[in-house]
Design a protein around this nucleic acid. Structure first.
Lengths: 330, 330
DNA sequence: CTCTCGATTGCATGCGTATGCAGAGTCTCG
DNA sequence: CGAGACTCTGCATACGCATGCAATCGAGAG
């Protein structure tokens, strides 16, 4: 059915291995032969079968990018530079969904169709990364980390980021703070909270339990949580949100209740996704350099593919406050 | 290195083909043998090689989803139901980037690593879909269509949607209309514009050239365009935007200039992405049922894989106005 | 003119799985 | 008790490409 290297060989009057050598640019082929093969290949629209090649070389030049929820705009923004870097390195990036609950997911990632995997939505208790490491699948954790896992990791310093927000709110004079933290099952949610709380403590600012909410990294969670906070008798003057999407939910809550941002309420997010800079939000937030993260992740992944036995690395990226218009002094 | 069916066979004391039969659930294997094989497979953490299987069966059970720009939230929302439906049908969905300019992209999609392709970001002049059809790669166009291409297609009735918006604005009494149309190189951009213009004509409402802008489907394009329109001596009272992201750019422009929505400016988008319902936007827009689109696309793709010679189908999905708070009567 | 060496190219085979076919038992029925 | 039917299982091979090794050819050296 499909055209194979044999068809090309027949047409060019050479053997199949010669076709293989020409198309891979292998040395030791006479220029005249090379030209004849290339011309035959073009005439037949021949495309080497990835399957055949993979079977023979035992490498697929494909990397799986595992992202749970693409409708969270953070992930496309992380996936994009990862894809670029991988492509530069001669690998194709394949986005696969993360059905953490599904035990066959590990099988799917370990079925030999991928040379490596980048996990971006690992949870603290996820079995997937352990499973992959156990099976010897080269694997890098990006964005989120898993405790006690000897795997290459690249994360933003979320604790420092949380502390930076605490410092900002303290310097603005806020004393009645609210927070919508992310899931404790994620290192991002946990670390941002820990850094925020610790730094608040250093500034001698309390964080009252009744002004703290917790939820998934979604707009609706932020909207519901901040809606509640704003309905309290003594609402907070500032809210730290687990990430930008949650912060936008906070903006929604404020908009719905007629609360002005930043006049009546300071909102700070985390991630600095592209939307954060839209005028309707003008969100003050914390930025981690995802391009740098992609660089490091790809570097580590390629190193591990080349040498599966190398010790695991952990790269931490410094965050930076991005000050826009959603914060105000008291 | 990796565990193969031979290893399992050796451990279970059977032949390799028997292992293959057991793991595929083929009939004609004694229950006792089946149990021994399964136990050996489990003990060895054996996962059948997708590559070997693909080579033997000449099918990969993988479908490529081609989406140009995942940072446009519309695409994740289309990709998600597509992925679900494909998975239900026993296929894996692989998101691949669309480098339309790159001529090797067609090769990558036709290298035998995919059983079929869904194109979501086709442009009118794209060579890719023609190339795929020519090479016999089963292929469905979703969301956007390409003229004169005998390929299965599923689109929203964009002309009707544009007409519905025109009707809405007319009924609200708007007479000084602005528009930010999408690229003429996309069927969505072109058809929405055509339907809008035609219906305006029927209502006897002019669309002045100086109030029309055109640009890509991005926030920044909408922001810039509407910023210009609002700066005119006689700005429009309503703007129809090519899609929701552009409409959100319009919201940004209004916010930046202190123009109130909908009091001073009516904004209508297209697509009804999830963000459109956020309180900060409350965007009135046009909805196409992407779940239905995914159903139809997958149905057509599977039918074509089963019978490559079948005639091409074209399914059109009816749009519906979604009225929120970004529109107002004059 | 013969020998050696290098440049090309073909041969044979392996990668891991699926499958048609044959062979070995087992069972049943006459 | 024998034969045909049926159930299992193994054998052989194909899928498309890559690669080690041998073979061939030509050219330059001696």
């Amino acid at each position: 059915m499909a055209i194979t290297s044999r068809d090309v060989a027949r047409m060019a009057g050479v053997s199949q291995p010669t076709v293989s050598r020409v198309l891979r640019g292998a040395p030791g082929v006479a220029p005249e032969t090379r030209a004849r093969v290339l011309s035959a290949a073009r005439a037949l629209s021949y495309v080497p079968s990835e399957t055949g090649r993979s079977l023979a070389t035992r490498a697929t030049r494909r990397i799986g990018l595992v992202a749970d929820d693409l409708t969270n705009p953070f992930y496309p923004e992380l996936v994009e530079p990862l894809r670029d870097r991988l492509e530069q390195a001669g690998y194709r990036a394949l986005l696969v969904s993360d059905r953490v609950d599904d035990p066959v997911e590990a099988d799917r990632l370990a079925d030999g169709s991928l040379d490596g995997v980048v996990l971006t939505t690992t949870e603290v208790g996820s079995a997937l990364p352990h499973e992959l490491v156990r099976r010897g699948v080269p694997c890098v954790l990006a964005n989120r980390e898993a405790a006690g896992l000897p795997a290459d990791t690249c994360v933003v310093d979320n604790q420092l980021g949380g502390a930076q927000v605490a410092g900002l709110l303290a310097s603005l004079g806020h004393r009645r703070l609210g927070a919508v933290f992310g899931p404790a099952s994620t290192s991002t949610g946990r670390d941002r909270e820990a850094g925020f709380r610790a730094a608040l403590g250093e500034h001698g600012i309390p964080l009252r339990a009744e002004l703290v909410r917790r939820g998934p990294f979604t707009h609706d969670a932020g909207r519901a949580a901040v809606g509640e906070l704003l309905g309290l008798p003594a609402p907070p003057t500032a809210v730290f949100c687990a990430n930008d999407v949650v912060a936008m939910g906070a903006c929604s809550a404020a908009a719905a209740l007629g609360v002005r941002v930043p006049d009546d309420l300071t909102i700070v997010g985390f991630d600095d996704i592209a939307m954060a800079s839209w005028d309707v939000f003008g969100l003050s937030t914390v930025r981690g350099d995802l391009t740098l993260m992609a660089d490091e992740v790809v570097r580590m992944l390629l190193a591990r593919i080349a040498d599966p036995g190398r010790p695991a690395e952990r790269v931490v990226i410094a965050p930076a406050l991005v000050l826009r218009r959603s914060h105000n002094a008291v």
